[in-house]
Design a protein around this nucleic acid. Structure first.
Lengths: 151, 151
DNA sequence: GTGGCTGCAAACATTTTGCATAACT
DNA sequence: AGTTATGCAAAATGTTTGCAGCCAC
């Protein structure tokens, strides 16, 4: 998304294109992954207040540019740019890495729920905890030394 | 689960079968659905301190009798008795009801991730937000009057 | 009897909010 | 210029923890 279209999207929905909002969007864009509000604040170091980060994320979510998801057990929300495709989050409990699994599994599920059960799914939040390929290869069951991601 | 086996499970793993723990388990059992820690505390009115409810839920989770899930946007965890089957949570954003969808969708997903991507899924948290059958029938898109579940 | 458990209150972490000032349009 | 958004600090929320006394074992 270009800077211009970002500005347009905000204005089109009655919001102003302010420095904090653009900076927050930039941070998420650069991260190409998930960030908590605090991590976002850290990446725009000193330039945006944490409370403003929350408000900016809220506005960006309102206009559909970002969305939040709860990953793992730490009490904070993670945020990411909204993707065109639904996707699952694969959280490795060994190394802590979060992978995006883009596939048709979510689509299939939505279809199944609608046709089979009349439930019209709009938002699907799918968080899978497990062991990723590299960690599963290293040690089967035993955590990798020095990669404490579990709490 | 009988009272006796509940006591056994706790003792078998080195925990005591105390009044608060049994009461918390009872509350979840009677609710046959999800309760937040605060709701659990309310249902054992005056008998168990909220902090103890948290500790009891923690112990019950440790021994595998209950587990937690984040439903919707309210910031608190919901707890339920552990089911033998994986299941999706269908949250209706009109009436706020939470339905359990037990199916093989989750199993299929786990298989797919393991065989196709080498990701060994252990925990799957699937929360689907949408419009349930009854609400979808009443009004297509327009919320049912007086049933404010969205925020 | 002893060690784990409870209740209370206080700490903690995350997110939200009130208000004066600054910045976008 | 007019209003919306920001920064700061303080409040609100949900959860965890320290400690003295209690209860299950």
């Amino acid at each position: 998304m270009t800077r211009d279209s970002l500005v347009s999207v905000l204005r089109a929905q009655g919001h102003r294109a302010t420095r904090p909002r653009l900076a927050v969007h930039d941070a998420l864009s650069a991260a190409s992954g998930h960030l908590t509000a605090e991590q976002v604040a850290a990446r725009v170091d000193g330039e945006v207040n944490l409370a403003t980060v929350y408000r900016a994320l809220s506005v960006l979510q309102e206009v559909g540019l970002v969305h939040s998801v709860r990953l793992g057990d730490h009490g904070s929300l993670s945020w990411e740019l909204t993707h065109p495709d639904d996707h699952a989050h694969l959280v490795c409990r060994v190394c802590g890495d979060v992978d995006h699994h883009v596939g048709n599994a979510v689509e299939q599920l939505k279809d199944h729920l609608l046709s089979g059960h009349g439930f019209e799914a709009t938002g699907v939040e799918l968080v899978v905890t497990g062991v990723c390929v590299s960690c599963g290869a290293d040690a089967d069951g035993a955590p990798v030394p020095g990669a404490g991601a579990t709490k």
